[in-house]
Nucleic acid binder design. Structure first.
Lengths: 201, 201
DNA sequence: CGTCTATGTTCCCTTTAGGAACATAGACGA
DNA sequence: TCGTCTATGTTCCTAAAGGGAACATAGACG
């Protein structure tokens, strides 16, 4: 496996998909997408459907996965992917390689709050309240995902990662709640006449 | 506000850059990039340099920023950007609009740990230890950024957001440490002979 | 038998991203 | 005064990602 020089490095998404194929014997693109939405999303990313299929095609080009059509008892027109030995070696090598890429937190609500001085305190409050509701929903989703992982064997690492990322989202929630409290306290004490808002030139 | 039809929606990155121009009277692309690296990165993203320039060009096309060349006493060939009234209105409108976009946590280390069963426990440990070091560094950077924000007026919201995201990164660190402890405990108890690894067909 | 939802995939075009290269200013020492 | 080193500042090229619509079929349910 892994001929002299790897053709080119693959993006993390490709390895994520290869990774899924290490847990499940076979997957369709659709399965992979569902899985990503349910679990991977909470600590890495949920690629677009078209992206999943593109990656699968590329992986097959490189011999890291192989595919077959539907079988007789599966009348549906579908393509089922399975990882190859080369693929398994490639993911393992990738997973064992430390990276200097840092975690990226892309937080749309925080970005808006960052610009809070441009809008009324009421608007900021709405943003944060909605964000809090969203995060609560997400914590529920993570718990569901975690519950599923409990029932499956060989999922120790995925479970640990889900717990880990659950903590991160919980901290986000706590921070949002704390900020909201601060915001409410502040606007209660000082009436909106304080000249802190939009000192436009 | 919000005129009948906006030309087309801009991506969040564009608003992030417009946002910076609300804090500072004038910025070059280089300045914007540095700022993003120092602060925005911790709760949203640090766009590539080329991306920053691209966004500035687009914003100018749309009349949301305007630019001038270097002045006599600034011999360098540079372009300095400033936000326009239209730009200010656009960011304010955007910032006040709640979004349903969820937070994305892109966590390269966690993704590798997720595949822990493919590699030795020692490799997993190395990954996590390096990640812990990285996060510690980052917490330091956030504190620095926070210290800078302390000294500037009108930075209440940015400061609050930095504190908020600091908590998120702290939770990441805590989770990593907890996981590492678990990992060490487990490998101490059960020798590496457990048949948990790659049940290949 | 109709139609509704879940499963499953592909195509096409746009936008976003990131690295490398390019270019110049000033600082500092030899 | 001449390298050369770092900080400043920008552009170009190509790859990756996104997203939605279209296409297709199976099974469920009334």
């Amino acid at each position: 496996m892994s001929a002299s020089g790897e053709p080119t490095e693959l993006p993390a998404t490709a390895y994520a998909i290869l990774g899924m194929l290490c847990f499940e014997r076979e997957l369709t693109g659709y399965d992979a997408k569902k899985w990503a939405d349910a679990s991977l999303r909470h600590f890495y990313w949920a690629p677009a459907t078209s992206h999943v299929y593109r990656e699968l095609a590329r992986l097959e080009d490189r011999g890291l996965v192989e595919s077959r059509g539907a079988e007789a008892d599966e009348p549906r027109t579908k393509r089922v992917y399975r990882i190859t030995a080369a693929g398994r070696a490639a993911v393992a090598a990738w997973a064992a390689t430390p990276t200097d890429e840092a975690m990226v937190v892309k937080h749309p609500a925080a970005l808006r709050v960052w610009l809070g001085h441009l809008v009324g305190a009421g608007d900021v409050r709405t943003i944060v309240e909605r964000h809090i509701a969203q995060v609560r929903t997400r914590l529920g989703e993570i718990d569901e995902s975690l519950a599923v992982a409990e029932t499956l064997p060989g999922m120790d690492y995925p479970r640990a990662v889900l717990r880990w990322s659950r903590g991160v989202h919980q901290a986000d929630l706590d921070g949002a709640i704390a900020f909201l409290a601060e915001l409410v306290a502040q606007t209660a004490v000082q009436p909106p006449s304080t000249g802190r808002v939009t000192p436009v030139t």
